[in-house]
Simulated assay, not measured.
Amino acid sequence: MTRKNQFWKGMLFGAIAGGALSLLDKQTRSVMKENLQNATDQASYILRNPGEISKKVKGTAVKIKYTVEQVSEDINYIIGKVDELKELTPQVTDMLKDTKDAFSKSEENELFEDILGEDDKDLTRQ
């Protein structure tokens, strides 16, 4: 035999020995007994009711398919909105620059009016 096969055999025997040693604890034995009983009950139920299990599996598959379709639609919607934002961003930026320029010019006119005084306001508006 090769070393590889001996390694896996050693792993198997070590696992069996470790499992057997852990069963020396009373609480571990009782938990394992309950788990084994539950697994046996579930296996026998599945063997007695294969049609019901098949229906449940098909129902779950339909739910998963529906969920995947919904997620796909949601992702496509989000991608569309991101594309719209990419197109709108330059337009919004230009609008903000224009607004800033308009306010800056208004503030400059007010500054000139303050500097020139009340009598010379007509000069700044011409």
Results as ranks from 00 to 15, higher is better:
Leu36Ile: 15
Gly19Phe: 03
Ala15Ser: 10
Val68Phe: 13
Asn109Gln: 09
Leu116Thr: 03
Gly19Tyr: 02
Thr89Cys: 02
Met1Ser: 09
Val62Gly: 00
Tyr45Ala: 14
Gln6Asp: 13
Val31Arg: 15
Ser106Pro: 01
Ser30Trp: 01
Ser30Ala: 04
Val71Asp: 03
Ala15Gly: 13
Ile16Met: 07
Asp83Tyr: 06
Asp120Lys: 12
Trp8Asn: 11
Ala15Phe: 02
Asp120Ala: 13
Val57Trp: 02
Ile16Gln: 04
Gly18Ile: 06
Gln91Gly: 01
Ile75Tyr: 11
Met11His: 07
Glu87Phe: 13
Arg125Asp: 08
Ile115Phe: 05
Gly117Trp: 01
Ser104Ala: 15
Ala17Met: 07
Thr99Gly: 07
Thr60Glu: 12
Ser54Glu: 14
Gly51Asn: 12
Ala61Gln: 11
Gly18Met: 09
Asp94Gln: 10
Val62Ser: 03
Asn35Leu: 08
Ser106Ile: 07
Lys105Gly: 02
Ala20Gly: 04
Thr89Met: 08
Tyr66Pro: 00
Arg125His: 07
Gln42Lys: 11
Ser72Pro: 00
Val68Trp: 07
Lys9Ser: 13
Ile75Trp: 05
Ala102Asn: 10
Glu52Tyr: 01
Asn38Ile: 12
Val31Leu: 08
Ala20Leu: 13
Asn49Arg: 04
Ile46Ser: 11
Glu34Ser: 10
Gln126Phe: 15
Glu84Asp: 15
Ile16Cys: 02
Ile16Tyr: 05
Ala20Arg: 05
Glu52Arg: 06
Ile64Cys: 02
Trp8Asp: 12
Ala102Leu: 13
Met32Val: 12
Met1Leu: 06
Arg48Tyr: 05
Leu96Cys: 03
Ala61Cys: 04
Lys63Pro: 00
Lys65Pro: 00
Glu107Val: 15
Trp8Pro: 00
Asn109Ile: 10
Gly51Phe: 03
Val68Thr: 12
Gly10Phe: 04
Gln37Ala: 13
Asn109Tyr: 02
Asp98Asn: 10
Ile46His: 05
Arg29His: 05
Ile115His: 02
Ala15Arg: 11
Tyr77Leu: 10
Thr60Phe: 04
Leu123Pro: 00
Gln27Gly: 05
Leu23Cys: 03
Thr67Ile: 01
Ala43Ile: 12
Ala15Ile: 09
Lys4Leu: 15
Lys4Phe: 08
Asn5Ile: 07
Ser30Thr: 13
Lys4Pro: 00
Glu110Ala: 13
Glu84Ser: 08
Glu113His: 05
Glu110Ile: 14
Leu111Ile: 08
Gln27His: 08
Ala20Trp: 04
Thr67Phe: 00
Val92Thr: 03
Tyr45Asp: 15
Ser44Gln: 14
Lys33Ala: 15
Lys58Leu: 10
Ile78Lys: 07
Lys26Met: 02
Thr2Cys: 05
Glu108Pro: 00
Arg48Thr: 10
Glu108Ser: 09
Lys65Glu: 10
Leu47Lys: 14
